[in-house]
Design a binder for these strands. Structure first.
Length: 576
RNA sequence: GCCGAGGUGGCUCAGUGGUAGAGCACCUCCUUGGUAAGGAGGCGGUCGUGGGUUCAAUUCCCACCCUCGGCUCCA
């Protein structure tokens, strides 16, 4: 197994080979940049006509020629001025612009065969080392990611050190497509999004709404057990509120237009925090009450540009599992640790045990509060993280303008990571809302405030859950835990009694009494990913038993009714 | 928002300058069958919307809307 650095070098070199192939096939293109990325590489080209997917095999073919020729990668150091002059003369204005931005007097040019490119390197020794690669897709992009600048054509590809790794990756892409939560949502009849309601606005069907309700109940119970108080705040609020919070000034491009009610402008809620702070402000608070922990499954609406909507993962209306903790400065560290542990406990319950944890610190320029307070807060967050067993990275300057934060990304069963939990420190709102508590000396003191979401949003989390489990939700989250099937009409009454018994024991069950062959019913129910199928024919009826079959074709054989009920109840209790 | 690809019955998708087809689903009938599709018949679409070209447009052209893949952004 080669290390990450070597893989990046391989992929980066593959992007050069691709650029060489493209320049060979399309002499009119100008080249821009071609980095390695998490799963492969890309290269941006300037070309008036778009590439089509049909171009990819031609480019791959050309790449194979270059690889076969086994050109060495030769690094030449040039005077920067000369390089810029050369790029300008050959019309490579993007390369010239990149060179101009490089510090120092010299730049490196890497050459392989007839193709040369401004590049920091490093590269592999020769093109022949790239053996296992595939071009994946074409896409539009912009020079420097700015849509007012030139439109580029981006080609994505990937490369590995072995055919096995490449095949595994391509298989994973296929598997990810099959697991797409939008497809699963439709196939399993969980939710839909329709034009008449509008993009990014989710309709929850009975089964999806039931799963959501199971999640919500667990979540509420979990928070009540852990010292939180549940709140509920309105979906619209006077603009005045968002003027106090500052959202009107800093967040208005994500807010929906105002509506006028009795001459006063109102807005749809984009954030829950202002409402929570208004609740805090309705009375005086003693230091003895702190920390005060408020939580709400708060639905918010944010304007997202149409191009970015993506099923449940990026919607316009969504429900945050929001919480705000008001804490005295000296309690901050302890409370941060508590929240972190809650997040991990909850994520584990849902079956996510691998995380990427990130501490995002003060942005370079735009921020509120004193630098000294930021540093103190960051220090306390870091000390919190050090007390946990988890590794974390520091995202320098990645914090919000109002405070540093911890983000927890979860890794799903395909190794993809998703941002869910976030714990954010806030220097801004306590000031803006002028919230305070009365300290030991009877004086007003400014508390700290922490925003936290453990799941992120119910919509996104549900989408991630669906993809993680490929729709086969654990029993405790399955909207239908078992379907009872009869063989023929002789067992209909017996099956109805079973259904009643299951329901009385809190099992989410249904009865498929259709006049269909058992194989047909099994097939349909199995495709709906129901955890258990119970078959009751005359054999079972006569012996007071059920024949059970677990998801994944596992025949459990016949067992007494109560044995089956106990089995389900145990799995439910263990959150399996 | 920008670039690209698409919008055909509830779903998945064929197809065509002469106003449409399959499979699944649905309905009816036959079938009562022991672990991933029993059989027959039937209902169902002004082919995303609005213009244009044409004797004739679902098909060609233009605009718009929406979806998808990206860019950017984000819970």
């Amino acid at each position: 197994m080669k290390n990450k650095k070597e893989l990046e070098t391989l992929r980066h070199s593959a992007s050069h080979i691709m650029a060489a192939a493209v320049c060979g096939l399309f002499p009119e293109v100008k080249i821009a940049i071609g980095p390695s990325i998490e799963d492969g590489f890309y290269y941006d080209f300037y070309k008036t006509e778009s590439f089509t997917p049909e171009d990819l095999p031609r480019i791959e073919e050309k790449m194979r020629e270059i690889i076969k020729a086994n050109y060495p990668f030769i690094c030449k150091t040039m005077k920067k001025d000369e390089a810029i002059k050369e790029f300008k003369e050959s019309g490579e204005k993007f390369k010239a612009e990149i060179a101009e931005g490089i510090e120092g007097d010299t730049v490196n040019i890497y050459q392989c065969g007839a193709f040369s490119d401004l590049c920091r390197g490093p590269h592999i020794n020769s093109t022949g080392e790239v053996k296992f690669f595939k071009l994946l897709s074409v896409a539009g992009a912009y020079w420097r990611g700015d849509s007012s600048k030139e439109k580029m054509q981006r080609i994505y590809g990937t490369a590995f050190f072995s055919q096995e790794e490449l095949d595994a990756y391509l298989l994973q892409i296929e598997e990810a497509k099959k697991r797409d939560h939008r497809k699963l949502g439709k196939d399993l009849d969980f939710f839909s999004i329709c034009d008449e309601v509008g993009g990014g606005l989710v309709l929850w069907h009975p089964k999806g709404a039931l799963v959501r309700d199971i999640i919500e109940r667990y979540w509420k119970d979990f928070h009540l057990k852990n010292g939180y108080e549940l709140l509920s705040t309105p979906h619209i609020a006077s603009e005045e509120l968002y003027s106090i919070s500052g959202h009107l000034q800093t967040y208005s491009e994500n807010m929906y237009a105002p509506m006028e009610i009795e001459g006063k402008p109102y807005r749809i809620k984009p954030m829950n925090c202002p409402g929570h702070l208004m609740i805090y402000k309705t009375k005086l608070h003693s230091y003895k009450e702190l920390p005060i922990r408020y939580a709400e499954l708060g639905s918010v609406y944010r304007f997202e540009r149409s191009g970015v909507l993506h099923g449940l993962l990026r919607a316009r209306g969504f429900t945050q599992d929001d919480g705000h903790v008001i804490v005295a400065p000296e309690m901050l560290e302890e409370e941060m640790l508590k929240i972190f542990n809650l997040a991990v406990e909850m994520l584990k319950t849902f079956g996510f045990s691998e995380y990427e944890i990130c501490l995002a610190t003060r942005p370079e320029n735009k921020f509120v509060g004193e630098i000294a307070s930021w540093e103190a807060a960051q220090k306390s967050i870091e000390s919190t993280l050090q007390k946990t067993q988890y590794k974390y990275e520091i995202d320098e300057g990645g914090g919000a303008f109002y405070g540093p934060k911890i983000d927890i990304k979860i890794k799903d069963s395909l190794g993809r990571s998703w941002q869910c939990s976030t714990i954010q420190f806030d220097f801004n709102l306590p000031e803006r809302f002028d919230i305070y508590y009365i300290d030991e000396n009877g004086k007003r003191a400014r508390p700290y405030m922490i925003h936290r979401a453990l799941l992120g949003s119910l919509e996104r989390f549900f989408g991630v859950l669906l993809e993680h489990y490929s729709g086969a939700l654990p029993l405790w989250l399955s909207p239908i835990q078992t379907v009872i099937c009869n063989i023929n009409d002789e067992q209909t009454e017996y099956c109805k009694d079973l259904l009643e018994k299951f329901k009385q024991n809190g099992i989410r069950a249904s009865f498929d009494g259709r006049n269909e062959k058992i194989g047909h019913k099994i097939r349909e129910i199995a495709m709906q990913k129901v955890p258990y199928i119970v078959v009751a024919g005359n054999k079972e009826k006569d012996s007071g038993a059920v024949s059970a079959r677990a998801r994944g074709n596992k025949d459990l054989g016949a067992m007494p009714i109560n044995a089956f009920i106990e089995k389900i109840k145990k799995e439910e209790a263990d959150k399996m």
